[in-house]
Write a protein that binds this DNA or RNA. Structure first.
Lengths: 343, 343
DNA sequence: GTTAGCACTCTAGTACATCGAGTGCTAATA
DNA sequence: TATTAGCACTCGATGTACTAGAGTGCTAAC
């Protein structure tokens, strides 16, 4: 078990390193007002902390740097969330200042402002599109053989897809079909759309529409929604601002990960509640072993949830980010639920 | 005027430097089969070329590197477009392999494949959205006081905006309004929409719809289209792959430029026809002084035009890129015109 | 238990020698 | 006269040596 003094020294060391990005030496520490001990004492304690795996040296005679375990301990036991400066609160609240009416807009904006405020990268995951329910289906013919299918959902999101009209289908067939679909499918969540489309409308369509088969197939394709669409980034380039990343190769790996949508689920696990911090190699992706990721979830109404993630160097300002995410996730939940309730 | 031999040496020097990214020396050149002269002769010629401003040295006893003027001359007079390898052609044509029905999809895909093929950054500017004509307007109520306005255009593009319904407007008012708008505004290009909205529908609306004023204002706001939306990037991160960019600060400036939509018009001047190459400081933006940009326009039908740009280091493989852009702009024009004609 | 003192270690910076690729110039050659 | 071989020279890159400084571990004194 660590002594009080060791805790103090660990905390101050991590704080200092987070702030300066330089290895922390005993002399330096002894100058701080919180630390009333002599450099020698500090050296002894630091040596112990190193032995226990909380600190490391970059070379034999250098100052100390927190190890992954050190950060972990700091985050778990030493993090005293400090109140955000008024300035930050104002900025964060400015996300909601204009009356924005679209969920998507609010989320985009959050990503932007969060990244500007933190100088790290913000990733926001919108609520599961599949839970939104259909408000209206329509098909607008464009040419003799193409049309665009449009699905409007309850949150104002509009999905659209152009498709080819199979030969021999008349405009009146399409008319009939869209009427039937609207009758049957309004109120259905997007997730169930596919299923319900087959179950409920197939037989009815067969009775009313000639050559329903082909038309149905095309439409079914159009109804397959892209499921990655609700990821929003802010400050992808902020990594370049961090002095911790000087190696172009590492930057490239990291950027590759962020660029490729397929990695998102590994950065930002879906469905976890509350605030989580993953440090260095605790992250699933090896490209992120020099990063820390703080995630927090937010809610819309009672069911739908989204997540916010901040990606920065391990030497991240945990205190500040945690406070910010706490505030924002609360605000976001409140605001979006309000927008959602109105329906 | 340059002698034949000087032309040859300039060309081979630029070619070699483009390929190797290393300053080119006289010995190295003399080993090439195209160059039957001794190193000493080459040195003399290179000294002349340097005097004329086509080549430069990085330091007194280094090999030579093309100057901006050198690249310019090379591009203007020495560029022998070599036929693309079959491989590249196949890849480029694969853009059109699946029957894609949306202009936007094709353009996005072009950006992606072009960047993969070149290892540079591709920027594609879609045809002016303003020229598309309205196919259908609709308003879908979401809640008691919000609705989403939808505009479908002839190319299958769907614009949508959520707006607040002013108090005291009844659903039947909206119904009436949307009918009037559809009657009057179908076939109008988006560019004229704003204008026509005021000119033609205002008086009629006034007669039929109570409190048309507020509703009209809201709708007008919704009809203002975002005009930057049709810029697509491919391979933004490819800059990181170029050995020419080792300075993180420069990379940051460059990325900032690309991130900020406001700079796009300066990278990619709208409305110019044909192929253009801008080298180094010929670019408008100082962040791009180490880059070359090759742009080419393409057409849809007779009027609408878009542009393609490739951004790479000055030491760009001009030959190859020019051939690729030539091919692609042709294909894109043909294919999109075909899609457009069908209407 | 704490700390002053000291020998020790390692990095970063500077100075200096060496190597090699490249140059410019001159004189010899075709 | 145009070309080229030869040579002295330049300069970056590399490697070695030395120094200053910040930091450490350990011991002995407080």
């Amino acid at each position: 078990m660590l002594t009080e003094r060791q805790l103090l020294i660990l905390k101050v060391t991590v704080d200092d390193y987070i702030q300066s990005a330089q290895p922390v030496g005993s002399n330096q520490l002894s100058k701080k007002s919180e630390i009333p001990f002599s450099p020698a004492t500090i050296r002894n304690e630091m040596a112990d902390l190193e032995g226990l795996g909380f600190l490391e040296k970059t070379h034999t005679s250098s100052g100390r740097v927190p190890s992954q375990k050190g950060y972990r301990y700091y985050v778990d036991h030493l993090l005293t969330p400090k109140p955000l400066p008024q300035q930050d609160i104002v900025q964060l609240r400015s996300i909601f200042q204009d009356k924005i009416t679209e969920t998507e807009e609010v989320i985009k904006r959050s990503a932007m402002i969060l990244s500007e405020l933190t100088n790290y990268t913000a990733i926001l995951l919108g609520p599961d599109v599949g839970k939104h329910i259909v408000k209206r289906l329509s098909i607008v013919p464009l040419t003799s053989d193409t049309a665009v299918a449009i699905i409007v959902t309850d949150n104002g999101h509009v999905e659209n897809r152009v498709f080819n009209i199979p030969e021999g289908i008349s405009p009146s067939d399409i008319e009939k079909m869209i009427n039937i679909l609207n009758e049957r499918l309004i109120g259905v969540p997007l997730n169930d759309l596919h299923h319900r489309l087959e179950q409920e409308t197939m037989t009815i369509l067969r009775q009313h529409v000639k050559r329903y088969g082909e038309l149905f197939t095309t439409l079914r394709q159009a109804a397959v929604l892209p499921h990655e669409e609700n990821v929003y980034f802010g400050g992808k380039l902020n990594i370049l601002k961090q002095p911790d990343f000087h190696d172009i190769q590492k930057i490239r790996n990291l950027m590759d990960v962020m660029e490729g949508a397929k990695h998102i689920p590994m950065i930002l696990p879906i469905g976890t509640q509350g605030l989580h911090i993953r440090i260095g190699s605790e992250n699933a992706l090896s490209a992120m072993e020099d990063c820390s990721v703080i995630t927090v979830s937010y809610n819309i109404g009672e069911e739908q949830t989204g997540s916010i993630a901040i990606v920065g160097p391990k030497r991240m300002d945990y205190k500040r980010i945690v406070s910010m995410l706490d505030l924002l996730s609360g605000d976001l939940s409140k605001e979006l639920t309000r927008m959602f309730r109105a329906k």
